[in-house]
Each structure stands twice: as structure tokens, then as C-alpha cells.
Design a protein around this nucleic acid. Structure first.
Lengths: 248, 248
DNA sequence: ATAAAACACGCATAATCACGCACTTTACTT
DNA sequence: AAGTAAAGTGCGTGATTATGCGTGTTTTAT
């Protein structure tokens, strides 16, 4: 069989099943592994597919998300790195949505081993890239604005969960008023999330500190960890340092 | 034998088999390799075929190969446009995952008004862009491979739904064997999806026609609509036309 | 931590190719 | 009819390409 014919065959398989295994191709085409690897490499060079350990994936299936346009991305990465230390192997983690959280998920070490419950499809997709992670997506009505599931169905499912840790972003946090928000549904949701977790960590960039919005989610005492991009001793954190929450 | 005769012979072989090997032609025509190479080169110069190491391929074969990703996308867009007619305002639609389905969702008219249940986070995110659409994401274990939710929890939730229409892609469809798949969980899932919908539409590119995989999802009789990029009267659809399914 | 699988790299080999040259055939001129 | 230019063909030689194997490394799974 000619090389081009093999390439064609491989691309057909890719378009059909979105992925191919090197070992399968070796059998189907009756050539050595090296030849298949070389074929795959050439197709990669032509930009026709995406190579991974064990085979190759369709290009269209895996090129969907844009990294660059996230606001205050650097700060969020700093926050993410700090927050990683909160996750221990085997933990059951309940995790929210929002850009800060997504950045956190992207920064997780590749070998992380834990169970994640999430209400955010985007977080679920990111988490799925980790082999030792089990992802449970909590279903329900899907919010167009915040890209998370919400509503009674979500809350009743949350009630059945007992998580070791809850990670969430926030619109506002204040050292006296605690966590607040503007949206009634999200408010309810966050309450439920906090209620079903032993500990709660809030990840937020410093510009959301000392802001109060209309609806109260919980007092500052309900928060176990506060993670910002600031140094532990930064002045802005003074008011929070006196509370129970640990500051990272 | 004259040069012209050899050229004709070569072109006949090309049209017959889509390919020729230099070595075969040497034997068949009883001339030296050089002569064959020169012949092939002249045919290439005339734009009649495409030369590769070891022989030559038909021009059409090559063109259907090099832009295969674009080709597949075009097909999927054609499929999407056809399938849109199945959605009526106010319908409750159950929709699966996969690239064909995602392309379908992207093609929906902006003013579409319906309720969508889905097991695919990516589909949910796309659907959320339509103002008059209500999206319910069915939660459960999240599959790393297929980027959909699956497992018992999903299936039990599906059992509570009664949808007007179910839209799904497929890995394989055969006019005798019906819908088949390779993955046990996805198999179960699809069965459940079909069971809870009044009608089922299968969206698939023609390359997936007449393929049978290991696990049976349902007989062809369970499918209400078959949507491919082919014309209604295309020969490949003959076997399906005799079944109950309506072909779009 | 460990073993198995998948991988990358260099090398050897065989097939395929390109090019120059010589020889033959063809076709055209005188 | 003979001469001649042009085209066609085959062969030798060295270059290029394709492939498989061995070895050691990386990745993955347990």
C-alpha cells in the first residue's frame, strides 16, 4: 500500500471516530509501528490531526477554547497556584464556575487524583483532561449568563453530596458582610454548595475585596480559606486576617 | 507498443483502481522502469494524475483526500441545515453530543424557540447563545473520551423526560443492522435517549453509512429520520429508503 | 515503586527515483 | 534514397525515499 493511501485511510478513521490508536492502525494496515508513527507525524506536520500518546485525535474536536482574553489572567494564575495546595489526593471537591475557577483547573498538576463535583460544563471539560480525576457534572437548568447549571434540581442534588472542600469564585466579599451576590439563583446555589461541604475556599482577585452586593450568601465565618493574588501580609487583607478564615 | 497506447492503458488502470504501481506497469507493459516514469511524468504534466513514491494516484482520489477536514465540515453543515426543519417552536428536544451535533447547534437560526435537554456540556454552551432556548443539562459522570455525561444517574434522569424529538449522531449505521456502537456506556445511553423520545433523528455523514460495530443500539425501525449530506435519491441510501425511516 | 506500553532515534536495507549517456526508431528534408 | 534532427527507449550510477529493527528513553497504569 502506498504511503498516501495509508494517510488517506488514517484521516478517514479520524473523521469517522474522532480518534485512532497506533496499535489499531498497525493491525489494520499491516505495517510496523514506526511507519504509523511516521505517518502520524507527517499528518501532524500538515496540520491534519493532533497527536497524543497512543494514537491521534481529530483536530476539530480539541480546538475550542480561547485562553488569551481572560481578564486579570496573571492574578488568577497566582491564585490558582496557591489554591492547589488545598487539594489532597482522594478528596471529594465541589467546585463552582467562573473564570477564576477555570484558570485554577487549568493549573492543576497532571497527576492530581480526586473526585470533582461541578456545576460548570466548562470546568468539567477542563477537568476531564486529568486521568486520575473523576468528574461528576451536576445537571439542571443551564444559565446563559454564568454558564453554570442552577435551579431546584441542582440544589436538591447538592443536598445529597458531602464534599471535603468547596471551591468557588465570588462577585464580592467584605470582611464584615461576608460573601454577597446580585443574582438570586446563584445566591441560593452558593448557599447550598457551602452547606454540603466541610470546608469552603473562596478564590477571588483583590479588586473584589471589600465590596458588598444586595444578596447575602454567607458570613465571613463560613469561609475556611480566602485565596487572593496578594501577599499574606498585604494591607487590604487586614480586615479578613482577624476573622476565622485562613488566608493564602 | 506506442507511447500513446501506454498512456491510455495507464489512465484506464487509474480510472479503474484509483491507483497504479510503477512496478506493476513495468510488468504489464513490458517496458523499463524509466519509460514508465517518463510516461507518468508526462501524464502529471498534462494534469491527468497525481504521482507518488511507488506509483501514481487518480487526481480525484487525491483531491478528496487533502482537504478532508473541510470536506467533512461542509457535509456536517449541510446535514445541520436539513435537520433544522425538524425543530418546531415549543418542542422539547433531547440532543446528544459529537461533532456533527455541535455543528448542527451552531447552525440553528437565532430566533429558535425550544427546550433542549442535552448530555453534552459543549452542546449546552452552544445552545446557551440562543435567547429563546431553554437548556437543561443532564448531569452525571462525565466521560473523558466522548465529553458527555453518562452512567446510571443520567439514564434514570432520562427516564423522567418525555421529549418530542431526539437528535443524535452515530458511529455507525447499517440498513440491516441498524445503529451500532463500540462503547457499552454510550450504547446504554443512546438506548435510553431513544426510549424517552417520540421520534428519533440520526444525523451522520455518508461515510458512516453501512458500517456495523460491535454493540447494537437499535434497529433501523426505531429511527424516524435519517439525515445525511447526500441527496434524497442517492444510491447509498437505497437500503434505508425501503425502511420506515424518512430520509432528509 | 514497578512493569508494561508507547515512544524517539540512529542505522541498515531495499525499493524507488533522477540524470546522463548511448543506442534505436521515427519522421522529415533534400 | 540518403541524411539528419528529433523523439523514444534502456542502462548504469548515484541519490532519495520508505520501511523495519535494535536500543534506550519516556509515559502510563497498577
Amino acid at each position: 500500500m502506498l504511503k498516501k493511501e495509508r494517510h488517506d485511510f488514517i484521516m478517514r478513521q479520524i473523521n469517522l471516530h474522532n480518534r485512532v490508536l497506533t496499535s489499531d492502525l498497525v493491525q489494520l494496515l499491516n505495517v510496523s509501528e514506526d511507519t504509523i508513527r511516521r505517518d502520524l507525524q507527517e499528518l501532524v506536520d500538515d496540520g491534519l490531526l493532533f497527536k497524543v500518546h497512543g494514537g491521534a485525535l481529530s483536530k476539530s474536536y480539541h480546538s475550542s477554547f480561547d485562553d488569551s482574553t481572560v481578564y486579570a489572567r496573571d492574578s488568577k494564575i497566582i491564585i490558582a497556584k496557591k489554591a492547589i495546595s488545598l487539594i489532597k489526593d482522594g478528596m471529594v471537591v465541589l467546585i463552582g464556575g467562573g473564570t477564576t475557577i477555570i484558570e485554577f483547573v487549568k493549573q492543576l498538576p497532571q497527576n492530581i487524583a480526586a473526585t470533582f463535583f461541578t456545576i460548570s460544563p466548562l470546568v468539567a471539560v477542563e477537568l476531564a483532561k486529568y486521568n486520575n480525576v473523576e468528574v461528576i457534572l451536576i445537571g439542571g437548568l443551564f444559565s446563559k449568563n454564568s454558564q453554570i447549571t442552577y435551579g431546584g434540581h441542582v440544589i436538591s442534588q447538592l443536598a445529597e453530596i458531602k464534599a471535603d472542600l468547596c471551591l468557588m469564585g465570588t462577585s464580592a466579599i467584605h470582611h464584615e458582610e461576608g460573601l454577597t451576590d446580585t443574582d438570586w439563583e446563584i445566591n441560593q446555589l452558593k448557599k447550598a454548595m457551602i452547606a454540603c461541604s466541610k470546608k469552603t475556599a473562596v478564590l477571588c482577585i483583590s479588586e473584589k475585596l471589600d465590596i458588598t452586593l444586595r444578596l447575602k450568601v454567607c458570613p465571613i465565618e463560613s469561609i475556611s480559606y480566602l485565596v487572593t493574588e496578594l501577599e499574606k501580609g498585604h494591607g487590604l487583607l487586614e480586615g479578613y486576617r482577624q476573622k476565622r478564615a485562613e488566608i493564602l
